[in-house]
């Protein structure tokens, strides 16, 4: 009860001089009013707690840096800080409005999972397996160029250097490789789509 007798101004002075318990008394004394004030503006308890916390962080910094001058009263000053932080909060939330799902709008119509589902993955594996078997059937020189181009991602110049032929020959082999693949696929009516 003795705490109630000490005025805010004395508590603030004591706090500035290093008495940490003075802050605890100040918070206990005014928390309900300050928190209630924040809650009337922001009806979300978690955000209210954040704003309340930020308010007192500002209070602590101002008092500890000794830039507080006791012109008015402590509580109106803290209320003003809280008020400014509430305005900041609404400014920020206006820039980044929170979207909630409703019947017309769903966040999942904008965000998609690009990973394949199990079925698609099985089909893709099958297609790749079929294709590798088809490539194995190609003549060696065509197969070599195609594998270097597609699987090793080499340029035709690099392929030409590696295989000891001209670039035009490498290009020609690639062309024949693709033509032969198409022929086999059409002949056997293989479906290579996912």
């Amino acid at each position: 009860m003795a705490n109630n007798l000490i005025s805010d101004a004395v508590l603030v002075k004591n706090y500035i001089e290093g008495d940490e318990s003075a802050l605890s008394i100040l918070i206990e004394r005014h928390q309900s009013k300050i928190y209630g004030f924040i809650y009337t503006k922001i009806q979300d308890r978690d955000i209210c707690d954040d704003v309340f916390q930020d308010t007192f962080i500002k209070v602590i910094k101002t008092l500890k840096s000794k830039s507080y001058n006791e012109e008015g009263k402590f509580l109106p000053w803290v209320m003003r800080i809280a008020h400014n932080l509430i305005i900041d909060y609404f400014r920020k939330s206006k820039k980044m409005p929170m979207q909630r799902d409703n019947e017309e709008y769903s966040v999942f119509s904008y965000l998609t999972d690009t990973n394949l589902n199990v079925e698609d993955q099985i089909i893709l594996d099958q297609v790749e397996y079929d294709l590798s078997r088809l490539i194995d059937e190609l003549p060696d020189d065509q197969k070599e160029v195609l594998q270097m181009r597609i699987y090793q991602d080499l340029s035709f110049k690099e392929i030409a250097d590696a295989t000891g032929v001209s670039i035009n020959t490498a290009l020609g082999r690639m062309r024949y490789a693709l033509m032969n693949l198409r022929k086999v696929i059409e002949k056997n009516q293989i479906i290579l789509t996912n």
């Binding site: 940490e20 802050l23 918070i27 309900s32 928190y35 707690d49 916390q53 602590i60 910094k61 840096s65």
Partner: peptide
């Protein structure tokens, strides 16, 4: 009652205990 969480109060008090601000010339260091 409209009161902040105990954790919030505890954080503020701990922050206050941990913080010290030194002024050197025109600059202040937290």
């Amino acid at each position: 009652s409209m009161l902040p969480k105990k954790e919030t109060i505890a954080f503020i008090l701990n922050y206050s205990k941990a913080l010290s601000i030194k002024k050197i010339g025109k600059m202040s260091f937290e």
